[in-house]
């Protein structure tokens, strides 16, 4: 009596735990050759999401909530920010994380709603092409940006930020 009861309440001994590695591969949901990509993507969405909350909230605060807000945004404002490597790094991180986060989200949505294999392939090809172009373009813009533009005679253009006066003279 006692022995039977304790056997019933304890975890079964002699019975394999579910999915303990002795399942015929044809019954597995995941393709082993795919590796852990989906799990890495799942973790990435949470980690990048938490980082993006901070990155984007500060971005919105400095650009829209302080100073002249929306009116201050022009070429000189961008030049002034990117004169500081901290903001270059900030915007670069934001660009990469937001694009990868958004692209993975769109990939999930395409997988959910596009039923035909060919439709999924097309939509995802367009998505990956667009994302690659935008990430490369944005990265190049941040690193090749020239704030103090001059004309042929070497005088500063009128839109140049004020700190260029010291650089040119």
């Amino acid at each position: 009596m006692t022995a039977t009861n304790s056997e019933a309440t304890l975890p079964a001994q002699g019975i394999e735990a579910p999915r303990s590695g002795r399942i015929d591969p044809k019954y597995l949901r995941s393709n082993p050759s795919k590796g852990s990509f989906e799990m890495v993507a799942w973790v990435f969405m949470r980690v990048s999401g938490a980082a993006l909350v901070v990155l984007i909230f500060v971005h919105l605060w400095t650009n829209l909530m302080v100073g002249d807000g929306i009116h201050q945004i022009d070429f000189a404002f961008v030049a002034g920010k990117w004169a500081n490597p901290v903001w270059q790094f900030w915007d670069l991180t934001m660009l990469w994380l937001a694009m990868l986060h958004g692209t993975n989200g769109m990939r999930t949505i395409i997988n959910d709603y596009a039923e035909k294999d060919s439709t999924r392939l097309w939509l995802k090809s367009i998505l990956y092409l667009a994302s690659t172009v935008i990430i490369i373009l944005g990265t190049l813009v941040i690193f090749t940006f020239e704030p103090c533009l001059v004309d042929e005679s070497g005088t500063l253009l009128e839109y140049a930020p004020s700190f260029c006066q010291n650089v040119v003279n």
Binding site: L95, G102, G105, I109, V141
Partner: peptide, 22 residues
Amino acid sequence: GVGIFFFLLVHVLDTSLVRVSP
């Protein structure tokens, strides 16, 4: 999420105009 993604594409493009001209 979808709305923000499409804005982000446009926003990187409009910001890229700093490399075209002020």
